[in-house]
Write a protein that binds this DNA or RNA. Sequence first.
RNA 1: CGGGGCGUGGCCCAGUUCGGUUAAGGCGCCUGUUUUGGGAACAGGAGACCGCAGGUUCGAAUCCUGCCGCCCCGACCA
Length: 494
Amino acid sequence: MAKLTPRDKDYSKWYNELVVEADLAQHSDVKGCMVIKPYGFAIWERMKDVLDARFKETGHVNAYFPLLIPKSYLSKEAAHVEGFAKECAVVTHYRLKNDPDGQGVIVDPDAKLEEELIIRPTSETIIWKTYKNWIQSYRDLPLLVNQWANVVRWEMRTRLFLRTTEFLWQEGHTAHATRDEAVAEAELMLRVYAEFAEGTLAMPVIQGVKTASERFAGALDTYCIEALMQDGKALQAGTSHFLGQNFAKAFDVTFATKEGDKQHVWATSWGVSTRLMGALVMTHSDDLGLVLPPELAPIQAVIVPIHKGGDGEAVVMERCNALFAELKAAGIRVKLDDDDTRRSGWKFAQYELKGVPVRLAIGPRDAEGGTVELARRDTREKSLVPFEGIASNVSSLLSDIQNGLLATSRQRLSDSIVEVDTWDAFTAALDGGGFISAHWDGTDETEEWIKQKTKATIRCIPFDGPGTPTPPAPGNCVKTGAPSERRVLFARAY
RNA sequence: CGGGGCGUGGCCCAGUUCGGUUAAGGCGCCUGUUUUGGGAACAGGAGACCGCAGGUUCGAAUCCUGCCGCCCCGACCA
């Protein structure tokens, strides 16, 4: 097991090595696709479980829609097809046959589909086609459905978790009787994402709205949570869209009101993906490997027995088993690593690489003295603690770690927001990474010019309210000097 | 699609400039012994149609032609 490339030497290389070495994922033989390994998938499952519970608490139900979508559906909503057409995988045939000229198989030309099918890049079209039949009356609303699925977007350039050709996600699709209700839903789900990011991932985010040019294809408004990675680049970690009546009109989804009028429904969609795995890695991890927040970690504490076999072994193992039972009873996700084909030093390094928050080691000396060596992954501090009261000790250590990770990344986020008022200051601030808070004249032209010139994009226009990084105050556009009502956040992003 | 890099046991790779007959080394794997409180040491062993297809040659991992694939950096995007 080689050491990882240090972050300050090559951040991108560090990331790739970490993902592979920590057993999260590996490249498959198909470009842009990855195998998510059991340990990586266990982390994704934790994300999924926590989010799924929140979706259900907020009134949503799960369903499943097909992977394959008739090509014609995609063209129903003009902006939507414009946004996705160029990255769709298309199914044209349904059968292979043996190659008559040699070995292997070829596409059977006789098995051409009458209408080509696309592999979903997102499911708005098939879902709204279906909703047309589900919705007739105001009594059918609101319709609050989520699905956990895979989607395919044929991106030019891919990176493990951050942008893969196929990725896993959830997509919520809701229908409402009024505009206000739909807007409230989109805002609610963004809050759910933000709470999840901070509470579970210990990853602070900035909530806001996208500019027109960054909006989801087919949306009237796109809300987002933006996070900051250790290298100073921003990452869009989740989005929630207010779709207006665009899809209802495109698929003719109407309902009868109490008064007997016929109206188009109002829609939202919202999603987070396995990209969150990448966000997680780049928020907390270090040169030794992954660092997982305890709320998320599939294994919160690992017990490593240390013995030389023989008589000592029984005593040590007895202690370890008791410890395991006690931690488990306290509701801690604990693993006892009693694999005696690996040495303890090797195990220590492994669990550090995999980001297990707390490690407990027990050797003959501890068994004798009634102590446990307690090591925390985030600060790498070790201490010798009494066996007595170990469960509450570990529990409070886990919450210390969770809080510590959040505090550290919060500090980094707030330190990285730089206010600038001149173009020189803007370009100077770019080198430091992080968010740049600046006035913008509100035009596409200025936004695009800045993007071309600096690769920095407007990540969002933050929401007002307590804790906003950009309290509303008028000023002048950092580029054109035209009047501006408020600051927005720029950054270079993943 | 542009620019760069690379395809050699499961993994990392030397060898390719200048062709030469058992394709080197490390990691990992298997067996044994000694070890075990921070990634063990020694000894032995298994494992390769050198990305694919042609060509040149007495002889090709190495030279020529064509193709395929992957990674990294850009443009596009969650």
